[in-house]
């Protein structure tokens, strides 16, 4: 057995003239929690559909547990895909979903499912049609956790879930993952809420991999330098600038990778340093591409 759960090489998926996934290559290691992050329409769901054999690749190769997932019973049995708008038969009640889950998931833990039903206060006997949006999401979360599938996808699993229920989801996910390590790919927009749970982060933008990094390396990998425009410009000259902003004679520039010595030098030069959260970092990385920040700062300095 290798340590690789997913291996993707040159993967491309086109819908007519639109390229949803554009020449992607990456691997997913076993028994880690991955964050799949990106803006709306970046290709997150398409990518997960490809990985779970629900879409055919236009070109490139993809392996899940060493084989193509398409029509492959061995691979598909080890997957669980929780999507934001799961449809159920009209006559179903939540109890039917939980009763049929063991047919699909070999590792299904009914005791865990029961506990989660209590945690989320899910009415088991109410017709699914009558459930609220949040209760529908709770069913997905319960199935995703209790399935204990070797590779579990959560695609925006918490539409309509309140803050308490989301916290329960994160806590139970972590608890159960510690006891039963498995590969989890969590796609979400609520980066700040989940960032501490993630071991690895994949950020995609317009169908391409923008970042493929250890979450810990990303955290603290950038700092915002604030101070007088001339001082800031002198300090950031020649550095990897992620974004910049300014007002009057003040500038605020986010730069990558500062060493302790460089931080001390910045403070000695009278500049203020502030940390950049994973969410801020990703927002800046996925917006700065289309901006022309230099023009913006020139406009400010011309006015000042």
């Amino acid at each position: 057995m290798t340590d690789t759960a997913v291996r993707v090489t040159g993967l491309t998926k086109k819908f007519g003239a639109f390229t949803a996934i554009d020449d992607m290559s990456f691997t997913v290691e076993r028994n880690k929690i991955y964050g799949l992050l990106g803006r709306n329409g970046a290709g997150k769901t398409t990518l997960m559909q490809l990985l779970s054999g629900q879409q055919f690749a236009t070109s490139g190769s993809l392996e899940v547990f060493g084989a193509s997932p398409v029509e492959n019973a061995r691979v598909l049995q080890s997957l669980c895909f929780i999507k934001e708008s799961q449809k159920y038969p009209d006559s179903f009640r939540p109890e039917h979903v939980l009763a049929s889950a063991p047919w699909f998931f070999a590792n299904w833990d009914a005791a865990l499912a029961d506990r989660l039903v209590d945690d989320f206060r899910l009415p088991l006997m109410r017709p699914i049609k009558k459930l609220s949006r949040g209760q529908l999401s709770a069913i997905g979360v319960i199935v995703g956790l209790a399935s204990r599938a070797p590779l579990t996808f959560f695609d925006e699993p918490y539409l309509g879930l309140d803050a308490v229920a989301r916290q329960i989801f994160y806590d139970r996910l972590l608890e159960d993952y510690v006891e039963h390590p498995r590969t989890i790919i969590l796609s979400t927009h609520l980066i700040d809420e989940v960032s501490n749970l993630l071991e690895h982060v994949l950020v995609i933008d317009e169908g391409r991999i923008l970042m493929d990094q250890d979450a810990e390396l990303l955290r603290g990998s950038a700092s915002t330098v604030v101070g007088k425009k001339t001082d800031v410009d002198a300090f950031v000259a020649g550095r990897d600038i992620i974004s910049r902003d300014g007002i009057g004679g003040l500038a605020s520039v986010t730069v990558a990778g500062l060493s302790e010595a460089e931080r001390a030098a910045a403070r000695a030069a009278g500049l203020e340093l502030s940390p950049v959260s994973l969410q801020q970092l990703i927002v800046q990385r996925t917006t700065s591409i289309t901006q022309e920040p230099e023009i913006k700062t020139d406009a400010w300095s011309a006015r000042a």
Binding site: K32, I33, Y170, D171, E175, Y177, L198, E216
Partner: peptide, 14 residues
């Protein structure tokens, strides 16, 4: 490690 992970709500590898 697992106690730290559960208490701080962080990934156990971290």
């Amino acid at each position: 490690t697992n106690e730290f992970a559960a208490f701080h709500r962080i990934n156990p590898a971290t």
